[in-house]
Design a protein around this nucleic acid. Structure first.
Lengths: 183, 183, 183, 183
DNA sequence: TATGAATGAGCGTTCATTCAT
DNA sequence: TATGAATGAACGCTCATTCAT
């Protein structure tokens, strides 16, 4: 996976994967049909812990919706956006169009579920009066957009200009939930 | 450029580029040092009209900041996000890490300028009282995040679930500028 | 053996042989030094029953030489030429030049013995007055030539044009022994 | 072609072909789609001069059918059976079953035409009273069988026991046309 | 004796790059 | 300036062979 992340699908050599895995080249073919299916399977298995790592954070009891979303985003940013795992997301963006199976899987397992979860939260926030804008439930993408931006920024521009993703997300939450008096 | 967009750097063959360009393969080397520098130059020259297309929209006289931003976003979404040009952005996200020159150029010419422009608008909005959240000026990324999301969504998931990017952006603007009474 | 017949030496995989034999791949190496010697041994052991099947037909008591030869040829054609066994002969023709040990063995065990037998018959036929051409004893190959042709035809051209090998052989015998009045 | 003859299809390496042809390996792919089609095309183009070499011998004026056939066979044996060209025939026998296109072509261009020519000669021989056995026309294969045997013998057994193919063929002709008084 | 996972040399094929024309 | 045939390094993949169990 590290090799695919570092070089992309086409530029990654089976030789390097084998070397890094500490096995002979032929051994790879005992586990995978070919390079393509290896890539797809690796992505698939890499996504599961990615989702787990996010989903496993239990919402604190008696928490406001804002706290829940903030918790969620903080976990994502700390555990994904600012680590090598974030590059998996970038890898999917990069190779998705040429690997429909990857894009399909990602949409099904991560995107649609994640958005459904976000939508539920938004609706809860609306019901509780924490969120005023009722249309937000139609576009839960807005809620997560800055987190995704953070992932991309990290890979491409962090050395040009560091970005405090958590701070950014808090400002974003202020837009949605209203500004807090204390910051 | 079309070929690079469709297949990525590594999977694109000079043969196909030459065919599409209507020249012989050898002719390419009269204009470019090698495949890498051709890619970098093409990206560079492709970005300019991309920026032009956005920047050229003159702000309507006497417009509110919201109108200006909305105009801007509408142009971007119509002219970039929902067309093949949007894939250039995705291409940069995909190949950027392996082509620092590309990422550098993109940051310098597009991202930093774009964000500076956004920041100026945000500050104008704050000054005029249109925008309440003063912290937004620290993170102009938030302003454009949904537009970028739209680009990525278009490439990867539009066939799974179409996304009305303009509607989404309007909701996003409502978060920033406050909800309009009439929609 | 079936695998070697179907695909030739080089294109046959030990994997398939092991599967067909119902053993693990490694087990093969307990019985054979390597693929080459396995091929040679298999050919050797396959030839024995091939010869047996032909040689075992007892000449009918009081038979004419022509009857003996015809019997012999009929057995060969029915038991070898028109069955999978015939392909062993073709396999030897195909791989012989690259496996001198195979060609040597085949020459020693089958060809020279078979020709010696044919020569004896021809001489008997000449002695009994059944065969007029005394020179035939110098080239017993002529006697069996149509049978070999039948084997090759079967493998290569039977689907283009079927060949009644037994009828052909009878005509051939007519040339040697003189035409019979009744057909 | 020499390489295929010497080693068979599967065991022949493109490297060796390129080396022998004095070109780089990649150059091969400017002329042939892949190894298989190269093999098929080479066989095809090798057969043409093979046929030409035989068919070009003009029948001597006022020749008997026996003379014509003998001439024909002598040319075949001298120009094909006892030279490297004969191995092309053996190669077809060897690889034909795995290359239906080759077997088909060979049947169409060589076998069926050759047999038709032989049949015509036989019928002429019958008409002229040179050949008594009218059934021979049904199996022109018999006429050429010893010539084919000679080809195979040459490849496999000539070092064990040399075979005078021309002498053998004369005896064979004696069987068909009747023995000549003088030899 | 039997296994089958692991090996790695070797093959067919591709494609960026060169250069004689 | 333009060509495109030729190159050959490099890659994905196969498969005969080995060896720890």
């Amino acid at each position: 996976m590290e090799e695919f992340i570092a070089r992309g699908f086409a530029a990654t050599r089976l030789d390097d994967i084998a070397k890094r895995a500490g096995v002979a080249k032929g051994t790879i073919y005992l586990h995978f049909k070919d390079k393509e299916s290896m890539f797809e399977e690796l992505i698939r298995t890499a996504i599961v812990p990615l989702v787990m790592r996010i989903g496993s954070t239990p919402p604190p009891a008696g928490a406001s919706v804002r706290d829940m979303v903030e918790n969620f985003a903080r976990t994502f940013i700390q555990e994904v956006a600012t680590t090598r795992r974030g590059d998996i997301v970038r890898l999917i963006v990069a190779e998705g169009p040429r690997f429909p199976a990857v894009a399909d899987f990602y949409f099904r397992e991560v995107v649609s579920r994640g958005l459904a979860g976000m939508r539920a939260m938004i609706e809860l926030g609306i019901a509780r009066g924490e969120i005023r804008n009722r249309n937000l439930a139609k576009f839960p993408q807005i809620l997560v957009a800055p987190a995704l931006i953070a992932v991309i920024w990290q890979s491409l521009f962090s050395k040009h200009a560091p970005l405090d993703a958590i701070d950014m997300f808090k400002v974003h939450l202020d837009l949605i939930f209203g500004e807090r008096r204390t910051t």
